[in-house]
């Protein structure tokens, strides 16, 4: 078997490990998963993208967070912001009024974009989100604290997900961790 010397995140087994963690995060919104065992030298952002993208999934990297060389490895075509299936953005920069992601259509709500937000820290910080909805035990309200994410993202998200099943899904990352807020989750900023 031919072995290629590539960083872990470009290899099948590691992508499967990351995929399982993303699946669990998607099922349990607000849960923070630590990917550092799978990432090696790579960032959580690249780990997530390497796992979820291929040449059939379009990407819009609005703040150029993906370095040129790795962009080629991802092999995914670039699309405009309003058409891209995946959008990568800096969480610290508030989305402007022209930031209008694809929300999908009633016939195909799965076409709604997934936005990957890069922030400084998940699990500590001044911004607190209170999450309720499917996958979150109703007995205990799920509270998460964030650092390096502008709260405008969450107020704009409110608009984007207001006509369920249309909407967007959010993946938040810091250097090594990930948290997912699917469109079914209700957020209250505290």
């Amino acid at each position: 078997m031919l072995k290629v010397d590539l960083p872990g995140i470009w290899q099948d087994e590691v992508q499967q490990q990351i995929f399982r963690q993303l699946l669990s995060c998607m099922s349990n919104p607000g849960t923070i998963a630590d990917l550092s065992l799978s990432l090696g030298e790579s960032t959580a952002l690249m780990g997530v993208l390497a796992t979820l993208l291929d040449n059939t999934v379009t990407l819009h990297d609005i703040h150029t967070l993906v370095p040129e060389g790795k962009r080629r490895f991802l092999n995914s075509p670039t699309a405009s912001l309003s058409e891209a299936r995946f959008i990568v953005a800096d969480g610290a920069i508030a989305p402007d009024t022209n930031f209008n992601p694809n929300l999908g259509t009633l016939a195909s709500p799965e076409l709604g974009a997934t936005i990957v937000l890069q922030g400084r820290q998940l699990g500590s910080g001044k911004l607190t989100l209170s999450l309720t909805g499917p996958g979150i035990p109703s007995a205990k309200e799920s509270k998460v604290t964030l650092n390096g994410f502008d709260d405008a993202w969450f107020s704009r998200r409110q608009e984007w997900v207001s006509a369920f099943p249309l909407g967007i899904d959010l993946i938040l990352v810091d250097a090594t961790q990930v948290m997912i807020i699917p469109r079914t989750t209700q957020i209250n900023t505290v």
Partner: peptide
């Protein structure tokens, strides 16, 4: 069921070419 496992796994694989 066995084919179902493979199909589910298949959907997670990136398309490289």
């Amino acid at each position: 069921e066995a084919a179902f496992y493979l199909r589910a796994y298949r959907s997670t694989c990136p398309r490289i070419g």
